[in-house]
Nucleic acid binder design. Structure first.
Length: 626
DNA sequence: ATAGGGTTAG
């Protein structure tokens, strides 16, 4: 005989659920999943308590607390109240505020007033959230008047929400006024909101002063500063501030990590990015979608696209940012086929592509010269998704068509544009003219660009290259003379490499580095060994008015050569050399990098102004199409 | 019974 013991029936809700979540026992509000809320709703109906207004309002609260409240469901509950309480209405306003139609919050508020129901202090904080979301300046200002009318002018919560509202609507002056009026009754949130407001306006100097003035600071004050630096392009300052936070033993939050990863990515600092990654792990930060996405972006922008792929595939929750980052990452690495395949997967998942998604898709096509695909997706974007092409989309198409030799089609596309082309677009077309020898069109565009921006040295260089290719030497000299006469601001090219825990930044002909002598010796060695391999310099990309021998010296000391030389010197054999530079790599450096990768048996990864080049065993991943 | 500030893509 065997003992048989029936299993006890499973309770509908676990004990933990009952204590924390069941609205039959209202307690402190906690976020619950939609399913949990629906279960509670079912239990309420089954228990015959559906007419209990308090219970139903509490149910509405749990919907309002979710990140994206289901509007239809919330409304069906709200509409069942004969006389909705302020509490219930507040929660419905809150649901609308988080929805795609935040203006409905204001509509509901008006109907509440028509019923002669009086708003309370909570009502206004939710309303200002809604107006911030909707950028509803007029409505918000009217509600501001209501705040005073109903006697809530001194409520700190409301004032902070108001401050934030004006800030969100870019009404810096109004925010300032509310802030000044709050003198004497400010709390940390008031200060942080004002700080965020100044940061949003791009005034980091003022933000620094405000930060120093604050009577108290917390983790949000610090993360606001760091994200502010990143958003305003002060990347090094962001990293410095973050290091300071760490050194002082202050708290770190996810927003900081995300922003610092973005800074590392933009600067191309792989070692730093890795450090932030390990920090996130050691501090036990959960791998959220935004953190994961930032990591994928960082690894892609620092040359480790394989690492990005691994993270992407392991991520359970992906949002549109995750997909966009991955598609764009594959594109900058020239992995066009993978980018397009991923885009198709993205569509199959039912995601709606954004304008950036198509920039990723089209730039993937342009970098790989996939003309047929490029034309297809450009059409798809307009016709299937109703996305109006922006300057960047045109940029990709003109680049794609122009570089693959369809210059006429590129011109046609520009002529049909709704918006007038910007200098970058003209410069893209000029580049195509240069490659394919359209000297007359190139001349026209080059002159136009110089007219548009006479201080930009790049335009003169481009135009003189067009002339040089057409062997119009007098014109070359004329343009060069013009360039020197007009005192143009030369955008200095730089390259950087991380080594031995430091960032080394070089400009062409740099002599400032502490190991300058060794670097120079290495340049000599490189010169000898690549010459043995059959290399002779291509000096056509040097346009300075100097002799050939000098040209060779200048080209030998292009910033990326210095960086690669340092890489060869200080990193162990077998390690990959990673260089980041701001401008596009010149033809000669590209050739030299290929040969170095072969004779020194080193993989070299260069991120230039527009894409990645993986040099390995004498070839480049761009297949010399860039 | 309910509340406020910070985040990533070209």
């Amino acid at each position: 005989m065997f003992a048989y013991k029936p299993k006890p029936p499973k309770p509908l809700l676990s004990v933990r659920h009952k204590v924390i979540c069941d609205p039959l026992l209202p307690s402190t509000p906690t976020f619950r999943s939609l399913n949990q809320t629906k279960q509670s709703h079912a239990r309420i109906i089954v228990s015959g308590l559906a007419r209990d207004a308090k219970l139903m309002a509490h149910l509405l609260l749990s919907l309002a607390l979710s990140p994206s409240p289901p509007l239809h469901y919330s409304l069906s509950i709200y509409n069942h109240f004969n006389y909705p309480s302020v509490f219930a209405t507040n929660n419905m306003i809150r649901c609308f505020a988080k929805s795609h139609s935040p203006r409905q919050s204001v509509v509901l508020y008006s109907s509440m007033l028509r019923r002669y129901a009086k708003p309370n202090n909570h009502t206004f904080t939710f309303l200002f959230q809604a107006c911030s979301e909707a950028l509803a300046v007029e409505e918000g200002a009217q509600i501001h008047a209501h705040v005073l009318k109903f006697g809530f002018g001194a409520d700190l919560f409301i004032r902070n929400a108001l401050l934030n509202f004006y800030s969100a609507c870019f009404r810096l002056e109004c925010s300032r006024k509310v802030f000044e009026e709050s003198l004497g009754s400010r709390d940390l949130v008031t200060w942080n909101t004002m700080l965020a407001c100044v940061v949003r306006d791009g005034q980091m100097g003022v933000a620094e002063k405000l930060f120093d003035e604050m009577p108290r600071r917390d983790v949000i004050s610090c993360s606001t500063m760091i994200t502010g630096y990143v958003q305003n392009g002060n990347l090094e300052e962001a990293l410095e501030f973050f290091r300071d936070v760490r050194e002082k033993g202050l708290r770190v939050n996810e927003a900081m990590l995300v922003s610092v990863l973005s800074a590392s990515a933009q600067l191309g600092l792989l070692e730093h990015g890795r450090f932030v990654h390990s920090l996130a792990e050691s501090l036990n930060f959960p791998m959220t979608t935004s953190l994961g996405t930032s990591l994928i972006d960082m690894y892609a922008k620092c040359g480790c696209i394989e690492q990005s792929k691994i993270l992407f595939n392991n991520m359970r929750q992906k949002d549109i940012w995750t997909w966009n980052v991955m598609i764009c990452g594959l594109a900058t690495h020239g992995l066009a086929k993978e980018a397009l395949a991923l885009f198709e997967r993205f569509l199959n998942k039912g995601f709606a592509p954004a304008t950036v998604t198509f920039i990723g898709v089209l730039s993937a096509c342009s970098r790989a010269g996939l003309v047929r695909e490029g034309r297809h997706y450009f059409k798809l974007m307009k016709e299937n998704y109703g996305i109006q092409p922006e300057m960047e989309h045109y940029g990709c198409m003109v680049d794609l068509l122009g570089r693959t030799g369809f210059v006429d089609e590129a011109v046609e596309l520009i002529e049909k544009m709704q918006v007038s082309p910007d200098p970058v677009l003209w410069a893209t077309l000029l580049g195509a003219c240069k490659i394919h020898g359209f000297s007359e069109l190139g001349e026209e565009i080059g002159s136009k660009l110089i007219q548009l921006d006479p201080t930009h040295s790049g335009h003169y260089v481009q135009l003189s290259t067009v002339y040089a290719k057409a062997k119009k030497w007098e014109e070359v000299i004329r343009v060069r003379r013009l360039m020197s006469e007009r005192n143009t601001n030369k955008a200095a090219g730089w390259s950087l490499i991380e080594a031995q825990g430091k960032v080394h930044k070089f400009v062409a002909g740099d002599r400032d580095h502490e190991s300058f002598k060794e670097i120079h010796k290495m340049l000599e060695t490189i010169g000898t060994r690549i010459a043995e391999a059959g290399y002779s310099p291509n000096i056509s990309s040097v346009l300075h008015d100097i002799g050939d021998e000098e040209k060779e010296i200048v080209i030998k000391e292009h910033s990326e050569r210095l960086a690669i030389a340092l890489g060869l010197l200080v990193t162990p054999y077998g390690d990959c050399i990673r260089v980041v530079k701001n401008l596009r790599v010149c033809e000669d450096c590209h050739e030299v990098s290929k040969i170095i990768s072969k004779v020194f048996e080193r993989e070299i990864i260069v991120r230039d102004g527009s894409r990645f080049h993986h040099f390995k065993e004498g070839t480049c991943s761009c297949h010399d199409f860039w």
